[in-house]
């Protein structure tokens, strides 16, 4: 319990929240970097995954891409960006590495979600004379949504947790609180940093669940 108490003391000390390396600034960086990365990854992965799932083609690619993605260490990708000319462009190395990290699982999940839709329902909709577009929007998408949203949620949590790696190459985010604590043998600060990352991940997951609850009417009543 001593460690958690220490972390609590660290977190409740107002001095740790202000300034360049304070919690607010690091939290802002973390949200900014993971938010943009997740948005770009979704914009790329979801349309491609959903469309491939709709066509029922490219399954091998869609499924294997997440296996390949798993083999590529984010730290190595980040390091490669940091020794390239990108290093002088602010948060871009972290964002680019996180986008590459998030695309494979999102794409695979979207594809699998579409393919898991009951084939007989799809056939029935075709028999009723639905066009490809209608089928996609009114049948497949609503039915695939729970799985796609689950994939999106776990993707968001993974991106937030992984964004801490940026600190290893000197980029911003909550990871810097952890590395700073690590370098000064301040376990309380490391725990505080980890708790902040976990809290942010839980908060975002909760927000995505809430957003999901609010959305269904709009998608099905059309």
């Amino acid at each position: 319990m001593g460690v958690l108490e220490g972390a609590w003391d660290w977190l409740t000390n107002g001095a740790h929240w202000s300034g360049e390396s304070g919690v607010w600034h690091r939290l802002g960086e973390h949200v900014y970097v993971s938010g943009i990365a997740l948005a770009i990854a979704c914009a790329v992965a979801l349309p491609v995954g959903l469309y491939l799932g709709h066509l029922g083609k490219g399954g091998a690619l869609a499924v294997n891409i997440s296996n390949i993605g798993r083999a590529v260490p984010v730290f190595a990708v980040l390091a490669l960006f940091m020794v390239s000319p990108l290093r002088n462009s602010g948060y871009l190395p972290t964002i680019a590495a996180l986008v590459l990290f998030a695309i494979p699982p999102l794409l695979t999940n979207a594809y699998v979600g579409m393919r898991e839709v009951d084939r007989s329902v799809v056939e029935a909709a075709r028999g009723m004379g639905m066009s490809g577009g209608q089928l996609f929007l009114r049948v497949e998408l609503p039915l695939a949504r729970p799985l796609v949203m689950t994939g999106l949620r776990s993707g968001a949590v993974q991106v937030i947790a992984t964004a801490t790696i940026a600190a290893m190459v000197g980029q911003g985010g909550l990871g810097r609180i952890i590395t700073a604590g690590f370098n000064t043998y301040d376990t309380a600060q490391v725990v505080a940093g980890a708790l902040l990352v976990a809290a942010l991940a839980l908060l975002v997951e909760g927000a995505l669940i809430a957003a999901d609850r609010l959305l269904p009417r709009a998608a099905t009543s059309r």
Binding site: T164, I165, G175, F182, Y185, V190, A201
Partner: peptide
């Protein structure tokens, strides 16, 4: 699994 790897390794240090 949700513990960031950086935090995991830092926390095991002591």
């Amino acid at each position: 699994y949700t513990v960031p790897s950086l935090a995991m390794f830092s926390l095991l240090l002591p």
